[in-house]
Nucleic acid binder design. Structure first.
Lengths: 222, 222
DNA sequence: ACCTGAACACCGTTCAAGT
DNA sequence: ACCTGAACACCGTTCAAGT
């Protein structure tokens, strides 16, 4: 039944996943689903667990930075297989045991790398959903625009939003001649991930050199 | 009407905001709302614009880092006044002109600071929703737990999730004796923000010293 | 005791009937 | 032409009636 729900969401989108529609898919009366699941929230929790269960285990014997990086990219691969997963994950109010176990293992990687408990706590907040391989993008510029539409947009918006247009121009011009789509999401994700990991590495060095400073202040303004 | 919608969401939560309920609040028949708005999505767009409109303008004459930091914290203040705003923002598929204007002005701050168009593009992706003052937290540890419940959790989960428990122990122990709640969200946000801004500063230095390198690679793995 | 159809309390939105 | 009540096509979930 969880598999059917995941398959339905994969194929028809998460908006199509209603209890009634899922029941129909399983050739079952709607109320029959409530034998397996208390309510829809619990169904979504179960679906999240399916995705989390697909994340490759951490590589062993690697330095913390490599281990963290690989695990996060593994999580991202799992999430990308199920386009609805990040949205559903965001909507969860309580973590399932499986999600907690994933978090626990990620924390373990940092602790093993020498991060203090306090610093690791801040790190978990700073990484946020990136620990699971996704980020909140505010505007989706990854879809490749029809060149005609794009040129029209550039002409229309040039006066109002010159800086946006400047970026669109350059990024899409590159895209035309090099890769297909307008913007490489994976590269952008890794760019931000490495930026953060490098920052964390610097923090770790500082912590090792002068242990237990003010635990709540940031890297510079502390 | 937008003000009524914002007020209703502020007071009763975004889940209580239905077209029918809003109409009731305005002593109007439900269908009357469709004179002002084509559908509910457009209503939500309008509500987002109300919040964006509350963001203080950028400080003038400051260095890029200070200017960006202040503007983001201003956005955060606006968002915190409307607890539903971040969730609604996430759900928008197309940015409104006001959101585009905000983004354009943020891009402008980086460009004025000396960032190239390409680097600024990556920066916008790396910052993501943080540009508007919010982040996806995966588990909410900010609410202060009842000490009894907390101790029970620690005892129950200790075997399964030792690393999580270790953090909870330390963070909540500090919280008992120093501040009220278990975890200072604002401090965590600023920690991550400063971590990123410091990272961007380093990238900017590298770019200035050796201009126009591979535009898509990250700080270390390029 | 278990299963399930109908019903309840909602949605957003269409549409035709009324003015 | 404008307004609006009823209706449509859905929800998740309750509950009582059937076996």
């Amino acid at each position: 039944m969880l598999r059917a729900a995941v398959a339905l969401a994969d194929e028809s989108g998460i908006d199509s996943l209603s209890m009634r529609r899922l029941a129909e898919e399983l050739d079952v009366v709607p109320m029959a689903l409530y034998k397996h699941v208390a309510n829809k929230e619990q169904l979504l929790d179960g679906m999240v667990d399916v995705v989390i269960g697909e994340i490759d285990p951490p590589v062993r014997g690697a330095a913390w930075k490599t281990a963290v990086r690989h695990r996060i990219l593994a999580a991202r691969r799992a999430l990308l297989r199920h386009p609805w997963a990040s949205r559903v994950l965001e909507s969860r109010t309580d973590a399932t045991p499986l999600v907690l176990a994933y978090m626990d293992s990620m924390i373990g990687l940092f602790r093993a790398g020498g991060f203090s408990v306090e610093l690791t706590h801040h790190v978990m907040h700073a990484m946020g959903s990136r620990l699971l391989g996704f980020t909140q993008e505010l505007f989706d510029d990854s879809r490749s625009l029809d060149p005609e539409v794009r040129d029209m947009l550039i002409r229309e918006m040039g006066k109002q939003f010159p800086h946006i247009v400047e970026i669109v121009k350059v990024v899409y011009h590159e895209a035309d001649s090099v890769v297909g789509p307008g913007c490489d999401d994976q590269a952008e994700f890794e760019f931000a991930l490495d930026l953060l990991l490098d920052g964390l590495e610097a923090l770790l060095q500082r912590e090792i050199q002068s242990p237990a400073p003010s635990p709540v202040r940031g890297p510079i303004h502390g």
